[in-house]
Amino acid sequence: MTEKMKWSKLYLFFVFILLYTPIFYLILFSFNEGGTMNHFTGFTLEHYSTVLQDSRLIQIVVQTLLLALLSSLISSIIGTLGAIGIYYVKNVRTQEVLLNANNILLVSPDVIIGSSFLLLFTIVGFQLGFVSVLLAHIAFSIPIVVLMVLPSLEEINPSMLKAAEDLGANGFQILWHVILPNILPGILSGFFMAFTYSLDDFAVTFFVTGNGFTTLAVEIYSRARRGVSLEINALSALLFIASLLLVLGYYYLSIYSRRMKKVKRGVAE
């Protein structure tokens, strides 16, 4: 028993080492005085100050965040309505077909989605730029939102919807007062998922971005191609810390809300 436990712990440790070593390696060299990834010669914060002074880079960060925010917001709205639409399809086979059509978009390679969007925009004669990237991001985010919202829709007690109708609520009132408040957790997780997907998307963006507009992922790629600069390490380290903070914030928020729920329950008993 204990022998087994030991091995499983060791295995877990190994897995996490494997996952995190490259990132820590990257972060370590962001403090390297030497300017290359070959030898660690001394500690410096120079690369960080370069990042913070690079106004182009800062602008790209803002652009990327704006893009992620807008695309996830819009795709949350469209995706939620889409999920409700699929939920209300009475015919089981049609429902399955719709769901599978949604999932195919989810698993199809980014390269295919990106190139097909490029093709579409070129044929239509659409100017490549912020809007084209936004449209593409919305498009690949919608299936994610649909997939996140559907389970919470299925958790809704159908007789609750019947009760709402029975109490005089029309279709819109049922949607607004009963369905939406109950699937809000699903919509929120769909939103965050879409946000992160948009934030770190490279392939699709790479295809449909024009001359004037670029996102962080594309920028890092093009800079990395030009040659290794530890500025990128510094930027990656900052991003890693930011996402770490996000995860921690989400964790404490969920603990807090769970505790609030418990307090409420305690009152009721």
Binding site: S159, M160, K162, D166, G168, V178
Partner: peptide, 28 residues
């Protein structure tokens, strides 16, 4: 159904979990 002067008490109560008691009763 929403235009009939008939109301139902459901087997599983079908209360709205996101509302308190007052809001549940006030819904209609």
């Amino acid at each position: 159904a929403h235009k009939r002067k008939v109301n139902t008490v459901f087997q599983d109560y079908a209360l709205f979990p996101h509302m308190n008691v007052f809001d549940n009763v006030a819904f209609g």
